[in-house]
């Protein structure tokens, strides 16, 4: 069972919409913010709340790349692999992050802090190479800057926004 305060929050969110189904993505986001990912149990309950079958919600969960059906780190490093970023680093920054954190794409680092995922162009091409973490952009990335950002994120107690 999802905890009562979360359930209440979801209910009020759903009530704001004319059609509960419009809130399907928001509800999945809330559940994954709470648990760190979209749990099976969370999915079942969310489906009932928005008036969909679990399978219908699974259809959405599996379609979108910002819905995580498995645990991820506290921060997901969404590293752009778009063509402009590619032009500036040719994939090496992604590999650098994986090496540094000792993970492959999608895995959680040993301290539970980080997951690295490749992401479609994030709309910061003028500051390539770029990544987005917990709603924040980081541009003009270099290995040294990445080291700095990771250290900073580890010590920060910032609130998680919608999509980690």
């Amino acid at each position: 069972m999802i905890p009562e305060p979360l359930r209440e929050k979801l209910k009020s969110q759903i009530n704001q919409a004319e059609n509960p189904r419009e809130q399907a993505v928001n509800v999945m986001y809330e559940i994954q913010r709470h648990y760190g990912y979209l749990t099976d149990e969370g999915l079942q309950e969310a489906a009932a709340m928005v008036g969909a079958t679990p399978l219908e919600l699974e259809e959405l969960a599996t379609f979108y790349d910002f819905i995580y059906r498995e645990p991820v780190g506290r921060f997901v490093l969404h590293v752009c692999d778009g063509v402009v970023c590619w032009m500036f680093h040719e994939g090496s920054l992604f590999d650098y992050m994986c090496r540094k954190l000792g993970v492959c794409a999608g895995e959680v680092s040993a301290d539970g802090m980080f997951t690295v995922l490749p992401t479609a162009c994030i709309g910061y091409c003028d500051q390539a190479p770029a990544m987005v973490v917990n709603g924040r952009f980081f541009g003009h990335l270099t290995p040294a800057l990445i080291d700095e950002i990771l250290e900073q994120l580890k010590t920060e107690t910032c609130d998680l926004v919608l999509c980690r």
């Binding site: 919409a17 928001n26 999945m28 986001y29 959405l60 379609f63 979108y64 790349d65 479609a120």
Partner: peptide, 10 residues
Amino acid sequence: IAVHRSAGRY
């Protein structure tokens, strides 16, 4: 006007 958040995919 209501903001509708997507969850990715071009």
